[in-house]
């Protein structure tokens, strides 16, 4: 149990989430990838707090912020999916490429 091992697990979760967010067509699966990336950040914040500055409170506060970000991401993401599905019956990212430049 060391800082490096914890951070490696966190980096693994982040990389897997990145793969999902980039490769999935379904918007819901894309959001799962984003959640997995934030999951890795929670683990990294907890490990950095415990192994480097356990006396302070910055790590736990960062975890609270990330948990809130996860909730906001889910809620806003599903609201956008609902809006675009209602107007255009779009449920995959490839059909919503209007802003592609």
């Amino acid at each position: 149990m060391s800082l490096q091992l914890f951070l490696l697990v966190a980096a693994g979760l982040f990389a897997i989430g990145l793969y999902g967010a980039l490769s999935q067509q379904s918007i819901v699966m894309l959001m799962m990838g984003l959640e997995l990336m934030l999951n890795g950040i929670i683990l990294a914040a907890a490990a950095l707090w415990y192994f480097l500055t356990p006396a302070g409170n910055d790590g736990p506060v960062l975890i609270v912020v990330v948990l809130t970000a996860m909730a906001i991401e889910m809620a806003a993401g599903f609201a956008v999916v609902t809006a675009i599905y209602r107007s255009r019956q779009v449920d995959v990212t490839d059909s919503a490429a209007d802003l592609r430049g």
């Binding site: 490696l8 990145l18 999935q24 490839d94």
Partner: peptide
């Protein structure tokens, strides 16, 4: 239900490698 599977995998493995080297 994938698009650009190989490219995504390359980016993700590359990200993990960079992070692991840094760690």
């Amino acid at each position: 239900m994938y698009h650009n599977k190989a490219g995504s995998m390359a980016i993700s493995v590359g990200t993990f490698a960079v992070l692991a080297v840094g760690i």
